[in-house]
């Protein structure tokens, strides 16, 4: 039995210790918002937050996750500024990469509330989108940054 902390809930799963976290989330916990894109850590579709850091769940053995806080797209509140900015900028097209993009952006904004374009490039460059939503991803991140500033936080 492996105990996981997913979206604030403690959950026990019985799977092989080296099973990638991605498949535990998707197949054992029915958290299908985390996507399978490449299985090799290249595309970012499977991005989740582990203790706040964007992490490729497709190459993360579940056994290394005990005692760590995992947040998936389902665990990010709908009122989260990144989710709201994503809706406002109409970022999504097919939508398949977006959970990973949103979590990567949330982590970036957590550590850099007003990131420069260069910081956005390096934080988001490894999250691929076949539909080409990149210009809007950039805009949405800037929008969150300007709201944060505007709100005096």
């Amino acid at each position: 039995m492996i105990t996981l902390d997913v979206n604030g809930k403690k959950i026990e799963v019985s799977v092989a210790a080296d099973t990638p976290l991605l498949w535990v989330l998707r197949e054992e916990l029915q958290l299908t918002g985390t996507k399978f894109g490449c299985g090799e850590g290249i595309c970012g579709a499977c991005t989740v937050l582990v203790d706040g850091d964007p992490t490729r769940s497709c190459v993360t053995p579940v056994e290394t996750m005990q005692g760590r806080k995992i947040v998936t797209i389902e665990g990010l509140p709908d009122t989260h500024p990144v989710k709201r900015a994503w809706l406002e900028q109409e970022v999504s097209q097919c939508g398949y990469c977006q959970p990973g993009q949103i979590l990567a952006a949330a982590a970036l904004l957590q550590s850099r509330p007003a990131p420069t374009d260069t910081e956005i490039d390096s934080a988001m460059g490894d999250n691929l989108c076949r539909c080409g939503t990149y210009p809007r991803i950039r805009k949405a991140i800037h929008q969150v940054a300007s709201e944060t500033k505007g709100g005096g936080k």
Binding site: R26, Q30, L31, T32, G33, T34, K35, F36, T72, I73, E74, D78, K83, W86, L87, E90, V91, S92, G95, Y96, Q98, P99, I102
Partner: peptide, 21 residues
């Protein structure tokens, strides 16, 4: 006009073929 499919795609509830159980 805002897309009708955006909310589900942003909150992770959109069901793709690979998500069907």
């Amino acid at each position: 006009v805002h897309r009708l499919d955006s909310p589900a795609k942003v909150n992770g509830s959109a069901i793709f073929g690979i998500d069907v159980q």
